[in-house]
Design a protein around this nucleic acid. Sequence first.
RNA 1: GCUCGAGUGGUGGAAUUGGUAGACACGUUGGACUUAAAAUCCAAUGACCAUUGCGGUCGUGCGGGUUCAAGUCCCGCCUCGAGUACCA
Length: 1234
Amino acid sequence: MGYDFDRIEKKWQKYWSEHKTFKADINHDKPKFYVLDMFPYPSGAGLHVGHPLGYIASDIYSRFKRHQGFNVLHPMGYDAYGLPAEQYAIQTGTHPEITTEKNILRYREQLDKIGFSFDWDREVRTSDPEYYKWTQWTFIRLFHSWYNKKTDKAEDINILIAQFEIDGNASVEASNSCEEIFTAEFWKNATEKEQQQILMHYRLAYLSETMVNWCPELGTVLANDEVKEGLSERGGHPVEKKLMMQWSLRITAYAQRLLDGLETVDWSEPIKEMQRNWIGRSEGASVDFEVWDGDEPTKVLPFGEDLGGVKEGERTSEDSFKEDELTTPPQPSPEGREQIIDYNLNEPTKVLPFGEDLGGVTKEGQNIHPLPIAHQGSPEGKERIIEENENDPGNTPGYYGTNKDTWFANKDYVRELRKNPTDAEALLWENVRKDRIGYRIRRQHAIDAYIVDFVCLSKKTIIELDGDIHDYQPKADKLRTEILEENGYSIIRFKNSDVNDHLEEVIKTIKTYLDNKIIEDPKVLPFGEDLGGVKEGTKNTEDSCKEDELNTPPHPSPKGREQISKSNNVIPDILDENNWFIEEDEVLPFGEDLGGVKKTLKRTITVFTTRPDTLFGATFMVLAPEHELVSQITTVDRKEKVEAYIAWAKNRSERERMTEVKNISGEFTGAYGINPLTGGKLPIWIADYVLAGYGTGAIMAVPGHDSRDFAFARHFDLPIIQVVVAEGEEPTDPGTWDDSIDSKEGVMVSSGFISGLQVKEAIGVTIRKIQEMGIGYGTINFRLHDAIFSRQRYWGEPFPIYYKDGMPYTLDESELPLKLPQVESYLPTEQGDPPLAALTDWKTKEGYPLETNTMPGFAGSSGYYLRYMDPNNRQNYFSAEANQYWRNVDLYVGGDEHAAGHLIYSRFWNKFLYDLGLACEAEPFKKLINQGKIQGRSSFVYRVQGTQKYVSYNLRNDYDTQRLHVDIDLVENDVLNTEGFKAWRDEYRNAEFILEDGKYICGWEVEKMSKSKHNVQNPDALIEKYGADTLRLYEMFLGPLEQDKPWDTNGIEGVFRFLKRLWRLYFDNNDQLIITNENATKEELKVLHKTIKKIHEDIERFSFNTGVSAFMICVNELMELNCHKHEILEPLALLIEPYAPHVAEELWQSLGHTGSISMVEFPQYDEKYLAEVSFQYPVSFNGKMRFKLDLPVGLSIAEIENAVLESEESKKWMEGKPARKIIVVPKRIINIVI
RNA sequence: GCUCGAGUGGUGGAAUUGGUAGACACGUUGGACUUAAAAUCCAAUGACCAUUGCGGUCGUGCGGGUUCAAGUCCCGCCUCGAGUACCA
C-alpha cells in the first residue's frame, strides 16, 4: 500500500472538520496572531493552481504559529458581490445569488481538498444581509461625519453643525468642497434643504455631480483602479468620461494619513511605492496669472532682451502686483485635494533677504499646516465671506437684488445658466460685459425670486432676452414683470433675433436707455469708521483686519486673496469652477464709481506648478479644453477654431486620448496671461495634454525645462527660453535643442531676483515671493480622487438612503439591513436608471423613495477583516473586546493586483473606524506579502503548412510550420502523447508525426494561464494523482513566494517521491511501523537539528521553497543513515506539519499519539547538536579556491595560518614565494596572497 | 517616458552579513533489480581543454571600478517583467 495519500487526506480533513480543530476563540492566555488571505471572488471557473499559492503559504505560517503557542485567527470568506455573476444574470436571467451560491460551494469543495486550517465558523459573505448590514452601517456613519483638519480626524457632523451655529464656517478647517463662507446667522436662517446642501460639501460620504469612468457596455461606472489603459479591467470594454450624480467617499481627506501610514507597515517596497504613486503627493505652488485685458491683441511674445524687465507701454510687474494685492481672488482648489503649506527654505539664512517675519515661516524645515480658509488662498474652494452686519443681525442682509435665501436656492441655477448661455445671450454679454457700454452689467443675476438675464444695478434696469431659456420657470411673465417692478426695476426686452441680427442697434438702445434713466437714491454703503481712505462702494480693509483677528495666518499676506463682501452691496459671487471671476466690480475698489471702473480686469488663471522657480521660463500657458475659462477668454477671431478643437477633444475616447499621446494638438485662444513676475504676456492655448482633472486644469508652460511643453512649443513655434543651467555650464541656444533640458538641479539664469540661486533655493525664494505678493502660496496637490461609491447595478449593497425633498437622508440604524429586493430584470430601466428604479415599492414605509444605485465591489471588502474578529455579532459590527484582542492583521497575503484599490480603500475604511474609536489600530495590515502570479506554460506542436504532418520541435526549422497550442494534459516533460493528440480534436484525427529519437518534442513558452491557450492547470486533477500534501509542497517548492513563476508539473514527481521516501522512514513495504527506540547518534541528531533550525528560519522569512529543500535534504540524509528512530522521527513529523499536515497527522498518530498534531509545541533546535569538531576550510590563493583543508575548530588564527602554510598543498601553490598576506575568517575561508 | 522589480546550467531555482557559485528538484545519460514495464535504488551531469592518473581555463545579462575576496557593493549600459501615464 505504501503512502496512501487519498485515504490519509480524506480521513484528516474529516477529523478537522468534525473536531473544529482550527476554531479560534478569544483566549487571553495566549498571544494572538491574525493571518488573512485576500478575500476571494468565487468565480464560475473555480480555482486554478495559481489561486491556492498564497493560501498555502498563509496556511503554513498559521500552522507554524499555532505550534509556537499563538492563538491563530485564520478565517476565510467570500467577496460575493461582483460583476461576473450579474453579467451572467443579464444573459441568462439566473439570479446572481444562485450563481454565487453555486460558485461558493465549488470553491469551498476545492479549498477543503487542499487541507487548509481555516476557522470556517467565521466565514462571511459580502452578499449576506447580516454582513452587509455593517457595510451599510459604516456608510451611514460616513454620511454623518466630516473631516476636521484641526484635530486631523473624522468627527460627527453635529460637531460641525454646532460650529456653524456659533461661527458659520469661517473658522472651520475641514476637507470639503464648499465654495462659500457664511456666517452663523446665515446658517441659522437657512432652510433645512439649504443646510443639507451645505452639509453635503462636508460629509465623508456625499452626493455630487462627478466626472466618472462610465462603461456603456457594463452599464456602470468604474473606479479608477478598475480601468486599465482606457478599458474596463473586467471584459476590456471602452470607458468614457461622463458627468453623473454619484455617491463618493471623501478619501482625499485621508490622503496625508494614508501616505504617512505607509511608513509604519511592513510591506514590500514596490507595493508601498504603488500606493505612494496612487496617492500622488506633489509639493509645489499655486500661482495666479492674470488674463491680459488689452484693448488690442498684440503679437505673441512680449519678452524683451532682458527677461527681468518689462517693455515700455506695458504694465510693469509692479503694477500687476498692486492690482493683485487688492483683487486677486481666492485660490480655489481642485476638489479639495490641496493643502496649503507654508513654504520654508532649507537654508533660510543663507538665501533669504526678506524680513524676519515673512508670515511665520519657521526654522525647522517645512512647516506644513493647513490654514484657516478665511485667511488663506482658500485651499478648499472658491469662497467669499458673506458677512452680515453683526451689529444689526436683524437687518436684511444687503444682497443686492435679492435676499440670501433666494440667492442660495438659486445659485446653482445661476451657475448653470452662466455656463450655458444661449447664443444671443453670449453675444450680448460679450458686448456689454464689464463696462463696455459705460455701465456695469451683470448677467443671470438674482432679483427677488427671479433670475434675470442681464441687469444694470446702478440704473435698476433689467434687460431680458425672450427665448426659450426660461421655459423651466413656471411663473407667468406678467407676474414676473410686476414683481420686478415692485422692486424698483424697469425692464427692457429684446428678442434673440434682435441680438443676433441687429446687435449694434440693441446695444445702442440699452445705452441710451441707461443714459436717460435717473436713479435718485443710489444705495449707500455702511462703512466703518476709518477705512483708510477707501472710497465708497469699494471693499474696505477692515475686512482684512478682521480676518487677521480671527487667526493670524502664518502667511505673508492675506491681502487680495479673498473677497470679503461687507453686506449690503454685494451678492455672493459666483466663481466658476476655474477660479476666476466673471464679475469683478463687487471686488474692485478703485474705480471712481461702480459704473465707471477702468482697467477692471480681474480674471485670473490659477496654475499649480511643482517648479515655481521656472516662472521666468514660462513662455505660454495651456488650459485643458474643458477648462471653463476657455469660452470666456477666447477672442472672436479664434472662436471657431477653439470650439472645433474642444468638440474634437470631447469626442475622443479615453482610449484614443491615451494611445495618441504623442500626437501634439492644441489651439490658441487669442488671449494672453500675464506672468506675475515679469509682466510678460503669455499666449494662452488649449490642449488636451493638460488634464482638467489634475491641479487646476491649467499650466504655465516652461518649454525649456519640460519635455511636453517643449514638444508643444516646437510644434506650434512658440518661444523657448532657458532658465536653469547645470552647475558650471553656460546657457545654450534653445533653438539647437532636441529636447528640454533637465532642470532638477542647477543654477537659475535669466530669472530676475532668483538668478544665480540653486534650483532648490530658488523654489523656496519664489514661493515666498509670490506669497508676499499675494498671488500664490506653497501647496500640496494629491492625485488621489475621492472614491466614487455608486454603481448603476443590481448586484450590490443597497444604500441605506432615502430622498426627501430631493435631499438624501439615512435610514435609522434600526432599519438595517436594508435588504436587496428581487427584481424582474437585471438591466437598466428604459430611462437608463439602475434596475432598482424599476421597482414601484422601493420606498421607505413613509413612502420616501430609496436610493436606486448600489454600492461598488470594494464596499464589502473594505472592512471584512474587522468583521472576521466577531462575525456573528448581531448587535455590533464587532465587539470592542474582540477588536482589542485581535487588533489587526499580522500577516496579510494576496496578489498585488489589489495594491492600488482594495489596499487603499480598506486602509481608509479602517482609519475612519479608528477615528470613530471602533478600530483600535490605525493600520489594518501590519505585514503584507504579495504572492507572485503563476503563469501558464503553454506547449506547442508544429504543423507543416497545409498538411496534417506535425514535426517535432528540433526539426521544425526544416519545414515551413505553423505553431499551435496543444493541451498541456497531452504533454509530459515536453513529449507529446501522440495518440491522445489525435483523439483530442477531430481535426487532428489524421495527424502524422515527424519524430526525433522516436519522440515528438513540443515547444513551450510562458504565457498567461488561460483556457484559450490550453495551459490551465486545475488543482483537483493533481490532488487526485498526487494528493494535497504533494500539491502544497510543490506549489511552495516552485520558487520564491513573491516571484512570478511559470507553472510546470515537471517537478511535481520529485516532491511526490520525497513524501514517499519520508513515509518509508516510518513504514516498511508491508506497511509495518519500523520505528525503533534506540538512542539517536550524534550524526542523526545533527541532521535533525540542522533541519529544525533551517525550517524555523525559512518560515519566519517566508522562504518556503528552501524549506522544502531542507526537508528533502533531511530525509535523504536520514535514509543514508538508515535511521528509523523515534527520537528523530517524532520531531520530524511535527516539523513537517505546516507544509504537509495530512501525512504529519497520520505519522503522529502512528507514533502512538491521540488527537491532532496541530497544537503541539514545535521542536526547538539545540546548538549543541550542531557543533562541529572540525571545519573544512576552502583555501584560496589570490582569491582563487585551490584546495580544502580540514582543521579542528577552535584553533587560533595564528595556528590556522601555520597549519595552512605547512600543508603540502600550499607549498605547491606558493611555488616557494613568501605569503604577503594571509586572511583567515574562522569557519569561513582562508585566503593567501602571494 | 517615469517608478519599481528581475536577469545564475537544458529547466524551476539555491547561495540569509562580501567568504567554497550552481544546494534541492526536474530532465538527460549510464547502471542495478525485472521476462518486461512501472516503481525503487546507485552513479554522472555548468562549458571548454586534458586524461592512465594528477589536473587546468573560463563562467552568475554587458562594460568598468572597489576589495585579500564580488552573483552579492559602486558607476555606466542592455534586456525582460510589472505598475503608471501627457500628473504640470
